[in-house]
């Protein structure tokens, strides 16, 4: 599933980061790495997602959120 499909408030584990090379590079630099635990905490009016990544809160637009493949923790 992608980050767009997640239930709010539940932690998920990031599997792959997609998108354009530039967008992917930026997400990697922000710490969106394989195996990282993130928690979607709010949804925006246009389908974007706000996630908690450690202490940071990051807003991601709907299209980019759709390129982040996540899974539920084991």
């Amino acid at each position: 599933m992608t980050l767009r499909d997640c239930k709010l408030g539940n932690d998920v584990i990031l599997q792959t980061v997609g998108g354009t090379p530039d967008c992917r590079r930026r997400l990697l630099e922000w710490g969106f790495l394989r195996g990282v635990r993130i928690r979607p905490i709010a949804l925006g009016p246009a389908g974007g997602v706000i996630v908690a990544l450690g202490d940071a809160r990051v807003a991601i637009d709907a299209r980019t959120a759709g390129t982040l493949i996540v899974e539920h923790p084991q």
Binding site: L8, A42, P45, G54, R57
Partner: peptide
């Protein structure tokens, strides 16, 4: 340990939401 939700997070659930955000 783990992600701790703050007052800011709780505000965001309302202030950026589909119904109240715009």
């Amino acid at each position: 340990a783990g992600v701790r939700l703050t007052a800011s997070d709780r505000f965001d659930r309302i202030l950026t939401s589909r119904w109240f955000g715009l």
